[in-house]
């Protein structure tokens, strides 16, 4: 009986990363009543996915990230599969550079995320330009990337608290 309870608890704790990432994803889809926030909405989901892929790749594997990416594309109405692809590539980057990025120095993990966000922004711009057959205005994408990069410390702090409380970091 105790063992069963233990296992259930472990399972629930194992789902914490994906649930928090999904929650931050939903926050992107909430209708805000403040002007122009939609266009520069920081990519909270990307930040959460990066955090967990970096610090708990055992709990945020490629498969859940891939599925969450598909869900994001479905709910957002964007090009289906591309966010999933971007997240898989991001996962590879985070895990392969883990020794450097997941150290004690927060700045390094932030720098890692900055490169992820910039790469994501460039891919976004290329894809949009390809769809429209002409180079699109880059200001909204630059603004969104800046927002995403600047909220990362907040997201990382919030997830870090959860990490400590729920997963005994």
């Amino acid at each position: 009986m105790m063992r069963l309870a233990h296992q259930t608890l472990a399972f629930i704790r194992g789902t914490v990363p994906i649930i928090t990432a999904l929650l931050l994803m939903l926050l992107e889809f909430v209708p805000y009543r403040f002007a122009h926030i939609q266009a520069i909405m920081p990519h909270l989901f990307l930040a959460a996915a990066y955090y967990w892929a970096l610090f708990r790749p055992d709990l945020m594997g490629v498969a859940p990230l891939f599925l969450a990416g598909l869900l994001y594309d479905l709910a957002n109405g964007g090009a289906f599969g591309l966010t999933a692809f971007a997240l898989v590539v991001m996962h590879y980057f985070a895990v392969s550079q883990r020794r450097i990025l997941a150290g004690r120095l927060f700045l390094l993990s932030w720098l890692g995320f900055i490169s992820v966000a910039i790469a994501y922004g460039i891919a976004d711009w290329l894809m949009l330009s390809m769809i429209t057959d002409a180079p699109v205005k880059s200001t909204p994408i630059v603004m969104q990337t800046l927002m995403t990069v600047s909220v990362y410390p907040l997201v990382a702090r919030f997830l870090g608290q959860i990490h400590r409380l729920a997963l005994d970091r």
């Binding site: 992107e28 889809f29 909430v30 209708p31 805000y32 939609q38 266009a39 909405m41 990519h43 709910a75 957002n76 109405g77 964007g78 090009a79 976004d124 894809m127 949009l128 909204p140 994408i141 969104q144």
Partner: peptide
């Protein structure tokens, strides 16, 4: 709900 990002 609303869409996020630059695609839609």
């Amino acid at each position: 709900g609303q869409s996020a990002g630059n695609y839609v």
